[in-house]
Design a protein around this nucleic acid. Sequence first.
RNA 1: GGCGCGGUAGCCAAGUGGUAAGGCAGAGGUCUGCAAAACCUCUAUUCGUCGGUUCGAUUCCGACCCGCGCCUCCA
Length: 493
Amino acid sequence: MPIRLYNTLSAKIEDLNPIDANRIRMYACGPTVYDYGHIGNFRTFIAVDLLYRFLLQSGYDVRYVMNITDVDDRILSNAARDGVTVQQYTAKYTQAFLEDSATLNVAPPALVRATDHIQEMAEFIAGLVQKGFAYRTDDGSYYFRIAKFPDYGKLSKKDFAGMTDGARVDVDEYEKDSARDFALWKAPKPGEASWDTPIGPGRPGWHIECSVMSMEELGPSFDLHAGGEDLIFPHHENEIAQSESLSGQQFARHWFHARFLLVEGQKMSKSLGNFYTLRDLVLKGHKPSSIRWLLTQVPYRNQLNFTFDGLNAAASSVEKLRNFRFRLTSSQFPAGSNAAIAQLATESAERVTAALSDDLNTAEAQGAIFDMLRKSNTALDAGEVHQEDALSLLAALDRFDAIFAVLKDDDQPKMKAILDWAKAEGRADISPQLEELAGSAQLADDQINQKLADMEAARKARNFKLSDTLRAELTNAGIIVENTKEGVRWRRK
RNA sequence: GGCGCGGUAGCCAAGUGGUAAGGCAGAGGUCUGCAAAACCUCUAUUCGUCGGUUCGAUUCCGACCCGCGCCUCCA
């Protein structure tokens, strides 16, 4: 089954057709590390992560590169303001980004940093100058000459042909031939970091890093380029212009853009008070798995309305999935198999794959897995699931989770780490819920098991008062005890 | 203004030219010492509004209303 994806360049859903049959080379625009990542950032990164994981599952040999933008105007001016080096300033947020990605189970791509490629950028720009696509202004900045690239606008569907501009739009800006020409290289600003290169001192423009690093890592022409929808213009449009001008070849063949999310029905913004970093949400007591699930619920091209109600609903959904897996792995089944269940497992896995192949329709895929869940639970209740069936269902579930990555119950240590960070930072907004969830491992497993044994003994003796007391103690420690026909079992809240 | 996306149950959200997936929440029931989990039943005669095409439209077309995005550095 071909994987179909919407391609911003053609504005159509197309079969993904890699240059090399079995290999995908993809590049994603990563974060600018000047602050902690917010949930909008992670919506995009998770969307790309789902794509990456699905390509791997589909058998492709995927080379996935993401950049870290560790040089831009904000970074340089903030570093100067704080009296630290650019490296010092960005190290903290780069680290935070890596931690947050891990918290959200984002599979790590190969990372490249802009500041490690300054010389290559200078060479790239020199090449553009040589070919007549770029020019230097009196102050030592370099600009790309859009008039030389007739395809300019092909990604963002903008028509610049009829547009003539007067002198300069912004008199504070450096001089350039046309208002639309964009900076490849900016002359140094007094008091801020700059780099010495063969084209002179200065700092790179925003777009050049991605052209340089993607082409260096993946070749002048590669399969897939991803990012948030805001990057379509100007960032990706400019990348195309630079890259194709220099190489004379098509740059990325397929462009994948994730749509922005809304928060409580409105665009996320600091002024509206609905701006959340990942850490903000965890501090409120929300599990990373709930956040990841909510961010995967709406297909990447649709607007996703991120709400706290939705987050709580997501937590319930994840718990339901985990309960199901728990049931499959902790129950005893009769030997043999049941053809109907085997078929259910197979069909469900196929439905998931078909949904994801259809432009990464995550909602459809999740619907399929919940159908399997309900039917399986019904069969489990009826005792119709045999050993081999349980394994088949488990395989289908884990295949699903190889993409969605929410089943592993590791929220608690992640939340504990963020709690520790928040305390070290002196954050005042640590919720009691986080304290409770992060601390739920205060009881060691053997302590839990001892209490469970005591509780079971009390229940056998029909000493329900003692039994209830012990259950309450465990509940307070974040342990949920389940008494089933097959005996007692427990899990963390 | 230009270009683009969307409006589906209390909330979130798929989807199809042939009569509405899934999740959450809610109600009732089964199971159960309690609890938890799970299952069953119920909850949109209807898919922003108004027209049109069609045997038939939520799905196609048009208009209108509403929300959202991009239009130079926000994922």
